[in-house]
């Protein structure tokens, strides 16, 4: 089981600073959002994760990403 999966990554608000808005990346099967959060250098000390969505639905960091998934990461934001 060492197949690769194609993932679309979307970043928002301050997470875009020095990174990107949207990118398509290839990961190993079994990759979780947490792996990608670590790879991006998003940590608890500075702008910890606020909201994580996979295919427009809220998911947990441990979710196993599937081929073609879109992962969206947001710091804590709000308004109204």
């Amino acid at each position: 089981m060492s197949e690769n999966i194609n993932i679309t990554l979307k970043l928002f608000a301050q997470y875009r600073d020095g990174r990107f808005k949207v990118e398509k990346r290839v990961y190993k099967s079994g990759t979780t959002p947490q792996n990608i959060i670590d790879e991006l250098g998003i940590t608890k000390d500075k702008l910890p994760l606020g909201v994580l969505m996979v295919n427009s639905k809220h998911e947990k960091e441990e979710y196993i990403l599937q081929e073609g998934d879109t992962l969206a990461l947001f710091p804590k934001i709000g308004g109204g």
Binding site: Q14, M53, G78
Partner: peptide, 22 residues
């Protein structure tokens, strides 16, 4: 993080993307 950082940086309009994504 919301009232102290997000709102001053982006205003209430920061919601467009997250509500759209959802």
């Amino acid at each position: 993080p919301i009232s102290g950082e997000g709102l001053p940086a982006f205003g209430t309009n920061v919601l467009v993307n997250i509500v759209n994504e959802a």
